[in-house]
Amino acid sequence: MNFWDYIKDRIIIYIMKTTAIVISIIFLSAFNVKSQAIIVVTNILVVTVLMSELWEYFRKRDFYIRLNNSLAELDKKYLLPELVNYPEFYEGKIMVNALRECDKSMAENVAEYRRQNKEFREYIEMWVHEAKIPVASLRLMCHNNQDVGRKMTGQIKRIDDYIESVLYYARSENPELDYVIKEVSLKKIFGSVAVRNREALQILDAAIETDGLDINVLTDGKWIEFIIGQLMANSIKYCSPDRKLFLRAWADNNDKGVIFHFRDNGKGILKEDIPYIFEKSFTGHNGRENKSSTGMGLFIVSNLCERLGHRIDVVSEYGKYTEIQIVFGKNDFYKMS
């Protein structure tokens, strides 16, 4: 609370009070009151006005300074009403009441959205599980009728992948955590991702090389399978047309943790695009060439990694290769629990 601003704000009151005192003096002299008496009365009036103004200023000043300080210190400004105490003056009480009322209504509003969000997420989860049943039937039908099925398997796999990505998007965007951290073998996870993508990889006549994956990391098995699945899907999608796809996956183990590397010899990523590839809806140069890019895959991947406490990095040279590294920390599990 600035003193001069406060004075400026009350200037009308001062003018009125001064005028009243001046008029009183004029009247008193008009009635021939002795000049000593006039001086005494004037003094009493001036001192009273000054005292009352100072008292008013200081009681308000304390309250507003505390209010401003609280506001400046809070990182979540909307929590302010929780910190404000009722002041002694009336207007302040009205204001605090209004603030608290606002706060309550806002909290209710937020709770309502949270509930809707949660219901929607639950619906998505249920929908995904329901949708997987006919997909499972279709896969079996394809297998049971090989001649018709062969062509459809690839498309069914695409449907299944899209369904899966909806599920993990819903999961990655929500604060509710529903993962299980346990020891997971990278070899097993990579194997099942490779088997899932076998048809697509074989059509491209891709070669895969793995090294040192026989190692356990602390993570959620299903989530990491989805993450590696997305990386592989990207390698397949953005493979270079003038050479055969070659995928290499390996793991380094040092005292900080395990680093999983996944490298392809595809199109690579433009240098200016690299800082943005984990951002939502970013498609970049490769995305403009490929109409089916959504910009969601790597965004979901980095979100999930963050949730799980893994670091994800990318190294790439345009036209040569892309390498994604996932760092599984050794102590992350304990930090999180």
Partner: peptide
């Protein structure tokens, strides 16, 4: 058709011999 590890861990601890997710 559920895709979380929780079910898998539970099932295995209840004595399932294997656990396969759809599709």
């Amino acid at each position: 058709s559920r895709t979380d590890d929780i079910d898998e861990v539970l099932s295995m601890s209840y004595g399932a011999d294997d656990y396969i997710t759809k599709p």
